[in-house]
Write a protein that binds this DNA or RNA. Structure first.
Lengths: 176, 176
DNA sequence: CGGGCGGTTGATAGGCATCAAGGTACGTGG
DNA sequence: CCACGTACCTTGATGCCTATCAACCGCCCG
């Protein structure tokens, strides 16, 4: 089995290194999550993790064979991750910029909230290029979409600093 | 832990039942795969599986706590599934119809090949509506894209019957 | 002060969604 | 056996959204 890491502080992006040298973002990780689940049962790392800020990782000691409680825990975590990947699939398949960006914001908001941070005052640690890569858009479109949401009064923003003004309205956008 | 099933024959689609009653396809399953991995460690089924043809499922007996070999096997399978979900993410994020359809075809071809079927003579068990939902497109666009690939001489088709004429050229489309 | 990175905004073109209208295959009932 | 209906696929016309290219701006840092 491969090595697992617990993310204690900071944030990461999981990227796939394209053959053309272009990196494509698969997801973002915040404290409290386990890094390396997709490599479980595989000795090779299929993705790269890049820190978005000063970050504290903690190697998880794997006692090897026979630790039943740990294995059950691992299975539970991987199930959760698989279900969240399903959500990601749904988000990407809608093929509509506004919905993708809003879903991303709500997702980030939930992550921040779970960390005890504000769910409405978001300081995004990743660049627009990363967000765009993750959502299957261009960074210009991400910017424009956020501008539109701001003009509708749902949020206020300045670059990567976003303040959600009407959370319910944002959620509503996903059903338009 | 939830129940797992082995798919012995036939094929399934995994769908998410939208609140609006509209179903959205998350993936397709062929013989040799385990059904229900994403629900591991969770007692609730978060997705629905629908048979695309006459299908043979086999319940996997879960002896419960303490079966080390089975748990390790399960972790390995879940890791594989997570990695394949990453591939799906990459496919959806390219945001280009031709590439999505081609990636889908190559994926299906590999699945069929693994079953001992022809990798080039594909009888798709799913409707175009399902493919479109899976790829985040409209079924009209799937049809048009396949027509275009046919006009370029890469394949021959009639509805759900597709014959791949130039596999390498198809793969090449993904890098255009 | 100057350079570079990251973000914003504008103009344009192309691809896909959308709506609409056939077409084809298949099953059903007269 | 054929008319009919339905489900699914195909093709056409049109408009919108977003990619693309380009210019500019603000900020940070050397």
């Amino acid at each position: 089995m491969n090595t697992l890491y617990a993310l204690r502080a900071g944030s990461l992006k999981a990227v796939f290194d394209d053959a053309s040298g272009y990196e494509r973002v698969l997801g973002f990780r915040f404290p409290g999550t386990v890094i390396g689940l997709a490599e479980s049962g595989n000795s090779v790392w299929t993705r790269t993790f890049i820190a978005l800020e000063d970050t504290w990782l903690c190697r998880i000691p794997l006692p090897g064979i026979g630790d039943d409680a740990l294995q059950r825990q691992l299975i539970r975590l991987m199930g959760e991750r698989l279900r969240s990947e399903c959500d990601t699939h749904l988000m990407l398949a809608v093929n509509d910029g506004s919905r993708k960006v809003v879903t991303f914001l709500v997702e980030i908001s939930a992550s921040f909230s779970a960390l005890g941070l504000s769910a409405y005052r978001l300081h995004l640690p990743m660049h627009y290029l990363d967000i765009a890569s993750y959502l299957g858009m261009r960074h210009e479109s991400v910017s424009r979409t956020l501008t539109k949401l701001q003009n509708r009064g749902f949020l206020r923003r300045k670059g990567r600093h976003i303040v959600i003004l009407d959370f319910d309205a944002l959620c509503q956008v996903r059903n338009e």
